[in-house]
Amino acid sequence: MSEITQPSPIAVPLGAPRPLLLNWRRYVPLLLVAPLLIYMLVLYALPVLAMLLRSLNDPTWTLSHYAALFEDVVFMKTFWITFNTSITVTLGCLILGYPVALGLVRAKTMAPLILVIILLPFWTSVLVRSYAWMVLLGRHGLVNEGLIALGMIDRPIRILNTPLATQIAMIHILLPYMILPIANALRQIDPSLIRAASGLGATPFMTFRQVILPLSMSGVAAGTLLTFVLALGFYITPAMVGGPRDITLSMLIAQQVDQLNWAYAATLSAVLLATALAILAAARHLPGVGNAFKTSMR
């Protein structure tokens, strides 16, 4: 036997399977996320689960807490207000946010500045921003003083502690969640598509209608979902600037916890969580939205 035909020691492990090493590699991603996973499981998931269970087993195993909701006028009204506020706020964010996203993507040198302005609310606490709105919208706040100075009204009008105040403040706080996914979708549109449309005879408006808008729908869907689901759970802002009778679900939950009415609070929490999850699940099946989940993952 010559030396050449003899397999070299290095060639063997390269060709042969190495089951031990392969198995190890498969679990590396899992091991990397394990510390956070355990942390969340022990300190977040288990307490939430325990809390939700109270809606079923307080004082004994029963569905009566849920059944009672159907005849609960306070719950029905609160649920309606919460839903209504979320829809109004989401629409407001969409109408105000889409043009900003378009501007952000179109702007070249100004883009970083615009982005900072959009993200500024992100870096300030919700509490501080809600206080700021109390100052601005109050009887002698900037908005009233300004309207009087402009001669548009004679006496201060009531804005603070109305549903309008809640909507104004929530739109301000949630706008970045609408703008960023839309801007992301717009940025992914190949600029040569816009040139192509123009070269093929489409005016800027027709290009927007037929190319830019449809291609940004995945971002619109993602932003709308995100904004709506976040709005459903808002607590601090409606509690501070909203009307005393316009109670949202999360305010009602807090109220019940204060009164140590744990089972009722847990039932309401479960309903709120289920509503948010149901909306996300349903939206996944809408055309275009499924893609939004995929593109946002890239």
């Binding site: 190949d190 040569s192 598509l193 040139r195 192509a196 449309a197 070269g199 093929l200 190319v211 449809p214 291609l215």
Partner: peptide, 13 residues
């Protein structure tokens, strides 16, 4: 003017 782009620029939607 008709134009053909390097990456074709077909509308994906």
């Amino acid at each position: 003017i008709g134009m053909v782009f390097q990456n074709y620029a077909l509308f994906p939607h």
